[in-house]
Design a protein around this nucleic acid. Structure first.
Length: 268
DNA sequence: CTGACATCCTGACGGC
DNA sequence: TGCCGTCAGGATGTCA
């Protein structure tokens, strides 16, 4: 499932291939829940516009476009669980479950493909995301996010209006690396523990970006290429196996409605 | 307001 | 071999 590192990989890959190109035609599938903005509005805003930049904000891919009279707009792509944003030659057959196609001046197409349809497309005047950016938030601001919160730290990490970009994989991996049990009340962690968590979270996100993200489920980048960080998962997807650090059996529980794996030896 | 929980959707996988 | 049930999960909406 695409989280910050996967979305960053896709956004950068798409940017390299499409920036500066003009969108000549827009096709959408008509599946209602995929579109947060009306399809006609998406087509109207994007048709004829030039793609200036494609970047990541939280888990959302933001495509900035320039329109005729100097106006700008943002095309927002959320991949959900199984969404893919691919850049392909127009001659290549459309994959099943394609929900949007932007035909570009250079002859390529940007395609949004999403089997499970948890992904969402919309247009907006501007977009900042719901929460703070994990890679740049300062120490004090990070600590303040969790102050007074009674929910489990794992659930807090998944709450996009606090931090945006962290999902199930990187929540579990950062908590393991910080030695913190996912069920601990967020507001009861010490400042030192939270600072350690912030440091490990940034570390794991940056490392995963370097490896092109984690390929579990069917995540691929703009070229359809898989990432490699899944080979370095220490807890995610390893329930029942032994901890690489202490040898104890990794436990699987549910926190915040999500499958959670942790090491009872290493995480306190 | 905060937090817990169900819901959406379909492919993959395990059991028989 | 093939069928069926179960599971996966990000965001949203509902409810206490």
């Amino acid at each position: 499932m695409p989280e910050l590192p996967e979305v960053e990989t896709v956004a950068n890959g798409v940017h390299e291939r499409v920036h500066g190109q003009r969108i000549e035609r827009v096709w959408t599938s008509g599946k209602p829940q995929t579109f947060k903005s009306p399809e006609e509005e998406i087509a109207e805003v994007l048709t004829g516009a030039r793609i200036e930049r494609v970047r990541r904000v939280g888990k959302t891919i933001v495509m900035s476009v320039a329109r005729g009279s100097g106006e700008t707009a943002e095309f927002l792509i959320h991949l959900g669980m199984t969404g893919r944003l691919l850049v392909s030659a127009a001659e290549v057959a459309l994959p099943p479950h394609t929900h949007a196609v932007l035909s570009l001046s250079g002859g390529n197409e940007v395609r949004f493909v999403d089997a499970r349809r948890f992904g969402r497309l919309s247009v907006a005047a501007a977009y900042d995301g719901p929460g703070a950016e994990p890679l740049t938030i300062g120490e004090d601001a990070f600590v303040a996010l969790f102050r007074g919160r009674k929910l489990a730290i794992k659930a807090a990490l998944l709450n996009q209006s606090l931090l945006h970009g962290v999902g199930n994989i990187y929540a579990d991996e950062s908590l393991f690396r910080a030695g913190i049990r996912p069920t601990r009340q967020a507001g009861r962690l010490t400042r030192a523990e939270l600072l350690r968590l912030r440091e490990r979270l940034v570390e794991v996100l940056r490392h995963a970006i370097k490896l092109g993200g984690s390929s579990v489920s069917d995540y691929v980048d703009a070229d359809g290429v898989r990432g490699f960080f899944q080979l370095e998962h220490k807890v995610y997807g390893r329930a029942g196996e032994n901890c690489h650090d202490c040898g104890k059996g990794l436990k699987k529980i549910v926190v915040g409605g999500r499958t959670t794996v942790y090491c009872p030896g290493c995480q306190r």
